[in-house]
């Protein structure tokens, strides 16, 4: 529980002894901002599932999704501490900043993983617990360790890790999965590339310095812009699939159509841009911010649609 590298920042006092990490650093290790999206999509999966779940068990299921995501985030930071130190965006995280030692992060991540999966299994069912375990293992081993440092397709395949929560939320209620949560899984899966590549365009040098083969780094900006548009078109089809397959109603259909059309226009603007200065990449930043709002809108619409048609 100690660190002696505390002291890479200007504010930190130089210490001759290892300092224990603060509890806030353990919270930071769980990537709380990423967790909000994971929790929200998991909650939506749970709310639209048919059947009944006791509120305390539903709360526990969402808590387990949050803890599982936090555990995966902690293990990701444990593995990537050296790379994070070379990126401006991540250099202030607890490990690269020297506020925590790697062993503490590893123990925290592994402990939280086991706890979240076991609690999910005991509180809801073991099918949901299995999907949660698979999502943690996929994020850590397939995405973080295998794909991310090796291929520009890292976030295309790795995007599956972030797409599991609606399946887990649904499975916590029903004990199985069906067409609607699978459609929501596909939506997040195809949403991930334009979301991350929009970010990668304006932090390209950060990724290049860290040696991470993100698409703008290895294939260039023009290819990335074209790929953003390509995956946005697949994402649009995935977004409309639930209403075309009559899994949702018009409330979702209208919301999805309008929100996706705005997304597509922004992606088109990004595809047309030839800007190379990250500071001037306004359409790219706008698309990145809107992509987060988009997922909240779409998943919120699924829940409202469900309530309207269930009433």
């Amino acid at each position: 529980m100690a660190t002696n590298a505390s002291l890479l920042t200007d504010e930190a006092p130089v210490s001759s002894v290892p300092m224990p990490a603060e509890w806030r650093d353990f919270v930071a290790l769980t990537k709380p901002r990423v967790m909000t999206l994971v929790v929200f999509t998991g909650l939506c999966g749970l709310l639209v599932a048919p059947g009944h779940i006791a509120p305390i068990l539903g709360f526990t299921a969402i808590l387990c999704i949050a803890l599982g995501a936090g555990a995966a985030g902690a293990l990701n930071q444990w593995y990537e501490a050296d790379r994070d130190a070379r990126m401006k965006r991540t250099a202030a995280r607890p490990l690269p900043a020297g506020r925590m030692d790697r062993e503490s992060a590893l123990h925290f991540g592994v402990g939280l993983s086991f706890f979240s999966v076991l609690l999910m299994g005991f509180a809801t069912n073991w099918f949901a617990a299995c999907i949660l375990a698979v999502s943690i293992l996929f994020y850590v081993f397939v995405y973080t360790i295998w794909l991310k440092p090796r291929t520009a397709q890292n976030i295309v395949i790795g995007g599956a890790a972030g797409a599991f929560p609606p399946l887990i939320g649904w499975a916590a209620v029903t004990g199985d999965v069906a067409a609607l949560p699978f459609a929501l899984f596909m939506l997040i899966f195809f949403w991930t590339p334009p979301h991350f590549w929009a970010l990668a365009l304006f932090v390209r040098m950060d990724y290049a310095n860290a040696g991470i083969p993100m698409l703008p780094v290895v294939a260039g900006e023009r290819v990335t812009r074209r790929q953003i548009l390509f995956y946005t078109s697949i994402m649009a089809a995935a977004a409309m699939a639930p209403v075309l397959l009559e899994l949702t109603g018009l409330v979702y259909g209208l919301t999805a159509f309008i929100a996706t059309a705005i997304f597509a226009v922004m992606a088109f603007q990004v595809s047309l841009s030839r800007e190379t200065d990250p500071a001037k990449m306004i359409p790219e930043r706008r698309l990145f911010k809107y992509s987060v709002l988009y997922l909240f809108l779409i998943f919120g619409a699924v829940v409202v649609d469900h309530w309207v048609y269930a009433a």
């Binding site: 210490s15 002894v17 300092m19 224990p20 990490a21 603060e22 509890w23």
Partner: peptide
């Protein structure tokens, strides 16, 4: 003594 104080504060809050 300052380091000892910081360590104790962190241990207490944890």
């Amino acid at each position: 003594p300052e380091e000892q104080k910081i360590i104790q504060e962190r241990q207490r809050s944890r």
